[in-house]
Design a binder for these strands. Structure first.
Lengths: 333, 333
DNA sequence: AACACGAATGAATACGTATTCATGTGGTGG
DNA sequence: CCACCACATGAATACGTATTCATTCGTGTT
């Protein structure tokens, strides 16, 4: 591989001058600058970014630690994050929940001196988050937030849960099932609180048999759970899923069992992912479209990186949710 | 940040010995090894992977240059690729089509000395591909293949197109529309050839007005095109979309216009993405499930990286497609 | 004319690791 | 007892860049 030293030799200058042509072109006389640029072109010179990073201690790279792409919510955020980062000149190292041990990821991002970290896949009590904070690397959480402090952008999840429950209560439902991921994940915790609040205000007791917090929210697990619910002697007349992704799998199971939606049972989710508004799906959901969460997250992060204002006041952004009533929810029959 | 030199000082050994403890532990006496490891732990030492890469000229990193996540096909491949790479100890730098200029991406991956490249987003005549080949970096194409030679894993796209067309012909359709991306993308080219072959064998002339190759296959573009087709004085009785993603958008438009599927018009796609088999969608599609394309691609790539067998015979893998008949296609009425 | 000063550039160094080469040490076989 | 060797380790160097420091040269000022 050709190095800046080779370029220097061909141009008849020192390696330092070659470096200057790249980083501070005005500081070198136009005449010699031209010689250097010609030599670069002739040798098809590509700077070694690793060597550059070694001395600058930064890498023009961010790390994205995301929830699984099996949830369409994270598909949309990943897409916008990677693209916006690229348009700003940053490469993105991507890791998905479950793919590698968090400790290995941490070693990678610290060892590679990434300029910033975007993360969603994180539990409230995970030491990983504290290590990130301690490392001093700029970071931004999205769709997750810590107990207190930190930088994050989230939906007002409690309100989202509450709105959805209220919608179903207003339709006359009383036996409302609730399917969620585990509640040491902030998103699920807050949505649950909202659900409980609405039920409490309506003075409806919550049937323990209808409320489930699963560690594993894969399609097959949701399928199992849904069929269990529908086979209950006294099945629910409505099911709230803590994410649209679960709601899709829930719908799928219900339809496969031969039930009608919403005639036999109403289904609703949270996140309002793209497919939810498809004519063939028409899932009632709570979300927001004024801002893209991934976009806000990555822009805030880049701002932190480039302004170096890590010690400014924390960035905490909360979106107001909106209810989209579609065809999967209807009055209790 | 603490370096191996700091560890060496605390352990009372040379930096070289610290390095040996990391890379060749057996070569250092157990006694001194312990001293070094203790010092590492006490200092919470993390090796600087950038410095390591500079000397080893490899980075334990692969680059994934993928089609957009707006197409669910690439969601599935991205998910499996990133996760498998992670489990093998590789980080993945991800780029999506349209996010950054290919030249910038190329500079990044060459400058960062990635160990290998996985790419799908590439046109037949793109010089980018030739540059990758020339760079000597191990690479693997997926869902795309060059005119000749190269390493790739693809569906038998021609056969896929042919099977789908034959299916609709057997249902009695004659006015079959075809919606595709541009045909300097191998996938679209081959699928189109298959479609034409089936039509030719059935001795059905292809109506130019029904066949479209769009450079931009975004949801809105597909929507526009679909409504144009359905508003034709003599609209098609069936529409083949070159990808399921387009078929979903096509369905959405048709349903929004008030037409019934498949009563008014049949719709089918290729790729058999996950959502296609959802009870509420039931899209007829051609694809295969025996292998995961992303999995095969990344495993082949890692094999190339670790065996260093770039100069072995090219890896060319073609999957046989299977037809999944669901509810969006029916007999011509 | 002497001097100061700024611009342009080269030489040298640092970044943190892996690796080669040299050195010393203890053991083994003759 | 000596020669030889395997082994353990340290010193030195390379990787390719950015950057600091020193040097040279031309220009304007007094």
């Amino acid at each position: 591989m050709t190095s800046s030293k080779d370029v220097a030799k061909m141009a008849g200058v020192s390696q330092a001058t070659v470096s200057r042509v790249m980083n501070n072109p005005e500081s070198v006389k136009p005449e010699t600058r031209k010689k250097v640029q010609d030599a670069m072109a002739k040798l098809r010179y590509q700077p070694n970014l690793i060597a550059r990073s070694l001395v600058t201690k930064s890498s023009r790279t961010i790390a994205l630690i995301s929830g699984t792409l099996k949830n369409d919510f994270f598909v949309e955020t990943t897409d916008t994050i990677v693209n916006i980062a690229a348009s700003r000149g940053y490469s993105t190292m991507v890791y998905f929940e479950g793919g590698a041990k968090l400790q290995d990821i941490l070693n990678s991002i610290i060892g590679y001196k990434v300029d910033g970290v975007l993360l969603s896949s994180i539990k409230l009590d995970d030491p990983f988050f504290k290590e990130i904070e301690a490392s001093g690397i700029p970071y931004m959480l999205f769709n997750r937030r810590p107990h207190s402090g930190g930088n994050y952008v989230v939906l007002d999840n409690q309100l989202a849960g509450e709105m959805l429950a209220r919608h179903l209560l207003e339709l006359g439902h009383r036996r409302i099932a609730y399917i969620s991921g585990e509640i040491n994940i902030s998103t699920f915790y807050e949505r649950k609180i909202g659900f409980e609040k609405a039920m409490g205000l309506a003075k409806i007791a919550i049937d323990k048999d209808l409320v489930h917090f699963k560690e594993n929210t894969s399609a097959t697990e949701i399928e199992k759970l849904t069929s269990k619910l529908m086979n209950l002697p006294n099945p629910p007349t409505a099911i709230i899923c803590a994410t649209d992704e679960m709601a899709l799998n829930c719908m799928n199971t219900i339809m496969a069992m031969g039930f009608g939606i919403p005639n036999d049972v109403s289904v609703a989710g949270i996140d309002d992912i793209t497919i939810s508004s498809h004519q063939a799906i028409q899932l009632t959901s709570v979300g927001q479209h004024k801002f893209k969460m991934g976009e806000i997250a990555v822009e805030q992060l880049i701002e932190m990186i480039e302004q170096g204002d890590i010690y400014q006041k924390p960035k905490q952004i909360v979106f107001s949710p909106e209810l989209f009533i579609r065809q999967t929810t209807g009055p209790k029959t």
